[in-house]
Design a protein around this nucleic acid. Sequence first.
DNA 1: ATTATTTTCGTGTGCGAACACGCAAATATA
DNA 2: TATATTTGCGTGTTCGCACACGAAAATAAT
Lengths: 360, 360
Amino acid sequence: MTTIKEIAKQANVSEGTVDRVLHNRGGVSIKTEETIKKILKENNFTANPIARALAMKSKYKLCTLIPGYDAANLFWKSPYMGILKGSEEVKNYGIEVTNFNYNQFDPKSYVDGFNNLMELNPSAVLIVPNFVNETKQIVKQLEKNNIPYIFFNIDLDGFNNISFIGQDSHTGGYVAAKLMHLSLGDNPTILTVQTRINISNSGISKRIDGFNDYFIKNNIPIERLFLDFDNINNVDESEVALNSMLDKNSHIQGIFVPSSRISIIANCIKKKHLKSLQLVGFDNTPQNIKCLEEDKISFIISQKPFNQGFESIHLLTDYLVKKKNPIQKNYSPIDILTKENARYNERFELEYENENPDLN
Amino acid sequence: MTTIKEIAKQANVSEGTVDRVLHNRGGVSIKTEETIKKILKENNFTANPIARALAMKSKYKLCTLIPGYDAANLFWKSPYMGILKGSEEVKNYGIEVTNFNYNQFDPKSYVDGFNNLMELNPSAVLIVPNFVNETKQIVKQLEKNNIPYIFFNIDLDGFNNISFIGQDSHTGGYVAAKLMHLSLGDNPTILTVQTRINISNSGISKRIDGFNDYFIKNNIPIERLFLDFDNINNVDESEVALNSMLDKNSHIQGIFVPSSRISIIANCIKKKHLKSLQLVGFDNTPQNIKCLEEDKISFIISQKPFNQGFESIHLLTDYLVKKKNPIQKNYSPIDILTKENARYNERFELEYENENPDLN
DNA sequence: ATTATTTTCGTGTGCGAACACGCAAATATA
DNA sequence: TATATTTGCGTGTTCGCACACGAAAATAAT
C-alpha cells in the first residue's frame, strides 16, 4: 500500500500538492500535476479508505424512502432491518443514513415523505417507487439538485436511477410455475389470487406474466381461474369468496398468489380444501414461513429482502466514497423455500435481530 | 459515538488512563478503574473501528488451510475466491490473510500445509478438516499455542473449534430427497452414486442419511440401488460401469449424487437413458450449472460457497478485532437451483471475478 | 529524614488522508 | 521601479485510537 507521503517523495513535492492533484483542487502547475499523475498511476495508488474515512468524519447523508410495515404485513420489515444493519457498518465511514416511511397505498404520503427527506439535503437516496406519476415528480427534483438515486424492489423503466436492487419478477413467476407444474403434473387447474390494489404494481404483473410464460413456452396445457380481492385484509369477506370459489370448482389443484399475502389466503381456506391444494407464493415473511412449516403452503419464492436492504446501503456508500459505479440491475436470488430449507435461508436477519433486541 | 476523549473527560482522567483500562494494561488504581468502567458502560462505549484499524496497522495474521482446486474439480475455487474478497476488505483493518492449500486426497499434504502455516505464527486459523486423525494432531498444536480455529465445510465433532461454517448436510440430503420425490412420485427407483474415496467424508454420508430419512419419515416406499466408483475421474471406466448398470436396470428413474461430482456422472450417461432420468446433486460448480442449463440435471442443492469463504474471514476478523464470539454453527442456506434461477444465485462471485480478471 | 522503589498517571507521537492557512515566487498593474 | 495580484506550493492541524516514555505521587527501604 503506497501512501500519499511516498508519492510526494517520489515527485519531489509536498503531501499537500499531491492532495491537490488527487482532489482536483487546482493551484498546481500543469507540469507538476502531470508528474504526480504519472507517479500515481505507476504506483496504482488508491487512498487508504480507513484513513480517508477517519479524516472525512461524516460527510455524506443517505436517505431512504420505503413503505412502512405493521403486524398485518411484515414484508417491509426485512429490508428496513437490512438497511439498519448496513447503516451501522458504514457509520464509521462518515455515512449517515436516515429512513423515511410512507403508506404504500397512499401516494400523498409518498410525496410528503419525499419532501421531508429533501430537507436533509441528502447526497444520495434510495426509493421504492410505488407510484409512477409521483415518482416522475420526485425524480425531477432529485435531478435538478444532482442527487443520485436508486430504485429498490420496484423496477420502473425510463428513469435515470443509477441502479436497481430487487428480483427479476418475471423469472420469479416463471420459477413459481415450474414448481406448480412439478407438483401437479400436466394439465393442471390453477387459481390465481390477487388484490386489486396490486394490479398497478408492475412487479406483481411481471410475476403473473412469468407464470404464464412457463406453461406457454413448455407447451403445457393448463386451466386458469382468477380471483381478485378488493381488500385482502378483510379476512371474513375473503374467506367466504375464496371457499365458495373452491366449492364450486372442486377441480382446482393449485393456488398461485403473486404477492407476499399468500399466508392470508392460506389461512382462509377450509381444511377439507387445503389438503388437496398446492399453494405457491412469494416472500419470506414470518407468517408465510409459518404456513410453510404447517404444510399449508408448498413453496415460497423469496428474494433475501434483508440482504437487499443491506446491500443497497453498501452500494450507495461505494458509489459516494469510492466513486464506484454500480451495475444497472442488481438482481437478488430467486430462492425456493420449502419447509425443510426455510430456516437456513436468511440467517443474518435473525442474528441481527438477536443482537439488537431493542429494535422490535 | 462517544470517544475515548469524552470518557476521559467524564472520569477526570487522561485518555491514556482510559486506554489502560480498555486494554487491561494495568497500572491503574482500583478506584479509578472502576469509575472508568462504569462510565464506559453508561456510554455504551465501543472503540471506533476505523480509528482503531488505522492506529493498529496490521497486527493480526489469519491463515486458511483448504483443499486446492483444478479444472477437473472447481468446487474449492469459490470458497477461495470468497476468502480473497474477504481478505481485501479486512486488509485495511490490520488483518493479513495467508492461504495454504492441500491435496484433499493426501493426508500428508494436509499436515505439511499446516506446518508451513504455523511458521507464520497466525492469530487464528480456518481449517477444512478432511482427515480426522491428522486433524487431532493439528488441533493439539493449535491449542498448545492458544490459537483459535474454525472448521469450514466439514463439521467434525469433539473439537474446540470456535465455530463451524458450512451446510447442514443431513438436511441437504433431505431436501434432495424431497425434490426427487416431487419429480418421480411415490415408489421411485433411485440409484445413488458415490466415490469410494468420499465414503470417509462425513458430510457426504450425512447427505445420504438425510436422503434416506426423507423417505422413511414420510413413509414413501422406494427401491434403492448403489454404485461406487474407485476413481470417478477415470471417465471411460465410469461411463462403462454406469451405462451398463442403467441398461440392466431400466426401471431406474432417478440418480442421486451426494457430492459435487454430479456433472461427471451426467456427462457419462448415454442420451437414451438421460432423457428419462431425474438427476439431483450438490454444489454450483460451473460444470454442474452447465448441466443444469442443458437439462441434464434437474436440481442442484447449493450452499453459497463464495459467501462461506467471505463470511469466514469476517467472522474471524470480528472475533479478533471486536472480541465478538461467533455462534457455534453458521449454517449456510440450502439453495435449490434449477436452470431458471441458477444464474441469480451467487452474483457476488461473478462480480468479484469480473472486477479482478487477473485472479483466473 | 532521606533515598529508593513502586504505583499511578499525563503527555506526546504516529497511523494516512482531508483541508485550511499562509508564505514565496511569478506575473500583472501602477 | 515599486506595489498589487495571482499562481504554486509547503506546513500544520484534525479525525480517534494505540502505545511508549517519563513524571509526579505514594509507598517502601535505609
